[in-house]
Amino acid sequence: MSTLTFHEVSVRYGTHTVLHEVSLEVPEGETVGLVGESGCGKSTLARAAVGLAPVTSGAILLDGRPVPTRGRRPVQMVFQDPYSSLDPRMTVGESIAEALPGRPARRERQQEIARLLALVHLDPGRAGDLPGQLSGGQRQRVALARALAARPQVILADEITSALDVSVQGAVLNLIRDMRRELGLSMLFISHDLAVVRYVADHLAVLHAGRIVEHGPAARVLGDPRHDYTRHLLASAHPLKEHT
């Protein structure tokens, strides 16, 4: 695993600036939570790191070297909507195999697919299933397995639980925590839900209108917020205090 560094990254579409000189570091083996409301540029930051959004200025570095934006990326991304992130005409196994590096022999490939499916707590026998036969939570696990198949150094998780039912969300969050413990994954975990981010992240960055307004250890940012916007977010996430 490696360190992913955003160095004064700006993304501009025409005259509209989505990200203003954002600097952020995802340290080796740690999970950084990125929170903010819709339209603040969270997803754009992740997409820029894998070459899906054009970087206007600044640099995105992996262990000090620019992240390649062609070919198999060392930084892999898991998308929000599990219903659109898997090709409906490809089996689970084919989708995962596509991301495997090199051209492994058939037997080797099947072993690797089975290993990855087991890793995300799915029955390896489901490799032949089409995404249509899986539930939302199962699809999201396949998407995670595909990202892991590319042997990434960093994983970007973009709102991976917000399209899931609450009963399924818990299982995916547990899985993310297991992975970090077992594989030592470096991860940028994007979410609008503070409680979810709090559960998985070591560090927390708050993005507001394309700028990082606060950044620090998760416990510190949540326990002792220093920026007004962070306080505002926290107040909104605590509607129940008076009832419970």
């Binding site: 070919g71 990326r73 892999q76 992130s85 898997l86 595909r146």
Partner: peptide, 8 residues
């Protein structure tokens, strides 16, 4: 997008 990131 996922396939592009995977280097397809």
């Amino acid at each position: 997008a996922a396939a592009r990131i995977a280097g397809v």
